[in-house]
């Protein structure tokens, strides 16, 4: 852009907007961005900033209908109970399995999908992706049925056929966890495959060609080239898996609503919901949310540091 043009443009606009403040406003390049950002500001203030302050305030209060009293740290002290610990434990175990399963397997699947020998790539990619279109509730309904308790229910009937005893899936801690983890893995697998596929596209082919010349086999190429080169994607998937794990709620709700035997399905978000809406303990729920918020922020800062969305430009 040459300077003369800018001046020409300025005089042009000045001519057009002469003496009309409304016209001046709609042509103003200074005001325009704020006009465009107004909806964002409004939503941010009403549905984010204020709720954050309110959350901290609520966590120091005992909230009953019509009256609210300050109780200092009582909610935080009350938080230290066995139900909460179980919720934290379940959330962590769940997150652990999600990471252990949903990183290496999609990475391997993506690598195989990317193979030049495989035809119908798009078909297989779609097949893996389709479960993620289904809501957790709908998926859970069918998982719940397949993993029914009787010998005739699908999964149990398979177990009986290969000589195992039928399981009461929704009653035990280990089997309950298995249900939640497998429901999530079924839904998320295809999404992670697509992330890794996108990552694979950015690996220069010359690296593999060089490895071929050195006589490397497929396994060596996978561990020496693919895995290290996929590190940024892997970190990204790791972070979203941790986030997904921390906020887990639906996978448990669909199997037990909010009343799992011995808390086997209780998660941190489930505990917040239960306290606030089933037991009317809003303050305690808020205190737990504050802890969760701080956790999310710590992980988020880690994410920013390693990904640097700020570094982008």
């Amino acid at each position: 852009m040459k300077p003369q043009e800018t001046t020409a443009q300025m005089t042009q606009i000045k001519k057009m907007t002469k003496g009309n403040p409304i016209k001046k406003m709609i042509f103003s390049q200074k005001l325009a961005p704020f006009f465009f950002l107004t909806p964002f500001f409004l939503v941010f203030l009403i549905f984010f900033l204020y709720p954050i302050f309110e959350l901290f305030r609520m966590s120091f209060q005992n909230i009953l209908i019509g009256q609210t009293e300050w109780v200092g740290l009582a909610n935080y002290k009350q938080m230290m109970n066995s139900h909460f610990y179980t919720a934290v434990k379940n959330t962590l175990i769940y997150t652990f399995w999600i990471i252990v399963i949903l990183i290496p397997i999609p990475m391997a699947l993506a690598t195989l999908l990317n193979s030049k020998y495989l035809p119908f790539k798009n078909f297989f990619k779609s097949a893996l992706f389709i479960p993620s279109l289904v809501s957790v509730i709908v998926g859970g309904v069918f998982f719940g049925l397949m993993f029914g308790d009787t010998e005739k229910d699908f999964i149990n009937s398979l177990l009986v056929q290969i000589g195992f005893s039928p399981q009461q899936w929704k009653l035990g801690a280990a089997t309950g966890m298995f249900l939640m983890v497998s429901l999530n893995c079924w839904r998320i697998l295809g999404i992670n495959v697509i992330y890794f596929l996108a990552g694979l596209q950015s690996i220069p082919n010359s690296l593999y060609e060089a490895a071929d010349i050195d006589g490397a086999n497929a396994v060596q190429k996978f561990f020496r080239i693919t895995v290290p080169m996929l590190k940024p994607v892997t970190l990204f998937v790791l972070i979203i898996s941790i986030f997904g794990g921390l906020r887990m709620f639906e996978e448990s709700y669909v199997f037990w609503k909010n009343g799992s035997p011995n808390d086997i399905g209780l998660t941190i978000v489930g505990y917040v919901y239960q306290q606030a809406f089933d037991y009317n303990a809003m303050g305690l729920g808020a205190a737990v949310s504050v802890v969760l918020l701080l956790l999310a922020l710590i992980i988020g800062m880690f994410q920013l540091k390693y990904f640097g969305a700020f570094k982008e430009d």
Binding site: P33, L37, F40, F44, I46, F47, F48, Y50, P51, I52, E54, L55, M58, F243, L246, R247, F249, V269, V272, Y273, A276, M282, G285, A286, S289, L292, L293, A296, L297, I299, G300, Q303, L304, A309, F310
Partner: peptide, 26 residues
């Protein structure tokens, strides 16, 4: 501008689920 963009990134980090109780009050 950078401040607002930073804010957007920051918001990406806070799942709505965490704010459900105060949001319900709102």
């Amino acid at each position: 501008r950078n401040l607002i963009f930073g804010l957007v990134i920051f918001l990406l980090l806070v799942p709505v689920d965490i704010l459900m109780l105060p949001l319900y009050k709102v």
